[in-house]
Design a protein around this nucleic acid. Structure first.
Length: 282
DNA sequence: ACTATTTGACCTCC
DNA sequence: GGAGGTCAAATAGT
């Protein structure tokens, strides 16, 4: 939610850019240890770092005060009226399971309703349900960082969407903007997850990048037509670098040739005028 | 004022 | 009984 502000978006994008520069530096080192271009990558890295620092300093990173929960009187909690709510059976089959670097780009609006520390897992599991639950949509999803690659998320979907997706109600009927910043396997980020909030007008609102400092899950960029890439259990990030279709024989060249999604992001209908200025470090 | 998120309590399954 | 899943009050954000 908090990342709906341009500054927050810039911060997130700069973080990604920083990660990409790191990745680029690695690739350059691997390609040619003596390459003078490494210094260029290092320069990009430094610039990103400075912008990030400046943004963090000005944003004031408000943090939620720890809730002072007042325990309800014994017996205060009462189950909702009517039949008991149906809980998903433990280990119930997910309709779909995805392992992805972004926690979703599935075109649906999700609302977080719970978080739980899971035994043997370093990161908590996050629970989301479709924001259209009031319209009877019972779709839920479970997001969990993978054990092997904390930058990756296992997303399990449960239930069917009866709402046909929030973004289908796009006011202009046009395709929503491609809002995915696809850094491919380089997104080894500290991204944080939160659910995408829908605008109060009930229509489609631009995809937002949101993060909460306290959350352990990842960046979430959502757009109805944005793509997500998946990898499967056996794949490692390194394997994916080699396997990703956008990489050719020269990974460095391919990297520079636009496997990243910057253009798509900057062409986004969102007002990125300010972003352009910042992105050019002026 | 209203909505979204956080988080401890509670429920259900194994 | 423990672990995972969900609820709902409290709180933050707009």
């Amino acid at each position: 939610m908090a990342l709906d502000t341009p500054a927050a978006v810039v911060l997130e994008l700069m973080t990604m850019g920083q990660q990409s520069a790191e990745h680029l530096g690695d690739l350059l080192r691997a390609a040619s240890p003596a390459s003078p271009h490494q210094e260029l990558a290092a320069e990009i890295l430094r610039c990103c770092g400075r912008v990030i620092d400046a943004l963090r300093a000005t944003s004031g990173a408000r943090k939620r005060k720890a809730a002072e929960y007042q325990a309800p009187a014994p017996g205060a909690w009462s189950p909702p009226p009517g039949p008991p709510p149906k809980r998903r059976g433990r280990g119930a089959e997910a309709v779909k399971e995805v392992v992805t670097s972004v926690t979703t780009v599935d075109g649906f609006i999700w609302r977080k309703y719970g978080q739980k520390d899971i035994n043997g897992r370093k990161h908590p599991r996050l629970y989301y349900r479709c924001a259209h639950r009031q319209q009877g949509c019972n779709a839920t999803r479970r997001v969990q960082r993978t054990r092997d690659h904390p930058a990756a998320y296992e997303i399990a979907y449960y239930g069917e969407h009866t709402c046909r997706g929030a973004t289908t109600g796009h006011p202009q009927g046009g395709a929503p903007p491609p809002a995915v910043v696809d850094f491919g396997s380089s997104s080894l980020g500290s991204a944080d997850a939160a659910s995408l909030s829908q605008g109060q007008q009930g229509g489609w609102s631009p995809p937002s990048v949101s993060a909460s400092p306290s959350s352990e899950a990842g960046l979430e960029l959502e757009g109805a037509h944005a793509h997500e890439w998946e990898w499967h259990d056996a794949a490692t990030i390194d394997e994916l670098i080699g396997a990703a279709p956008c990489y050719g024989s020269d990974p460095v060249t391919e990297f520079l040739d636009g496997c990243l999604g910057w253009e798509a992001v900057l062409n986004d209908p969102l007002d990125f005028a300010g972003l352009h200025r910042i992105a050019t470090f002026q």
